[in-house]
Design a protein around this nucleic acid. Structure first.
Length: 157
DNA sequence: GCCAACGTTGGC
DNA sequence: GCCAACGTTGGC
């Protein structure tokens, strides 16, 4: 049973174009430093799961493309790298605290802006849109997924 | 830059 | 285990 997710990234840091241009159009999703988001990767994410690639903390926040989970969760290498902004001195290779998954591009899409999403009743249940939500990885229901895909890829007449 | 909301830390 | 202080997120 495949699930669906929304994953936030700051485009200044890693954008949909970075994923588009990456070797194999695949990137390691590093830098998650929130336990709830980590637990989603550890406990529920499986290769093949669908991913909405979301641009956050930028001029035009919104869904910028579709991707898929390409690996199980494994240790996030950046936590052991003192030169990385994601370094965590309290983590050890024996018991890594932080995890990453690999993500592969499915399609860059038009930008479905946060503003437009808020205006869509069929998306109103999305965790992303809940007041105060800050989670960088949130589950997306099958109905929400289908509604987003329909908005991103309107059927031709 | 502001600020609300939330998560984490650490003293007790 | 409580909770105040502090840091971060992220839209605006």
């Amino acid at each position: 049973m495949l699930r669906h997710w929304l994953m936030k990234s700051e485009p200044a840091d890693c954008s949909i174009d970075d994923l588009l241009e990456a070797p194999g159009q695949t990137l390691d999703w590093v830098g998650v430093r929130n336990y709830q988001a980590r637990n989603f990767m550890r406990d529920a994410m499986r290769p093949g799961d669908g991913v909405l690639f979301y641009h956050s903390s930028c001029a035009l926040p919104g869904v910028a493309g579709v991707a898929e989970v390409a690996s199980k969760a494994g240790p996030d290498a950046t936590q052991f790298d003192p030169s990385s902004r994601y370094f965590d001195a309290k983590s050890s290779p024996d018991s890594p605290r932080w995890l990453q998954v690999r993500v592969r591009l499915v399609a860059k899409t038009r930008l479905l802006s946060l503003r437009e999403m808020r205006g869509r009743p069929e998306l109103s249940t999305m965790v992303l849109l809940k007041p105060g939500n800050r989670l960088s990885i949130t589950p997306v229901t099958a109905a929400e997924w289908q509604a987003v895909i329909a908005l991103l890829c309107p059927p031709e007449n």
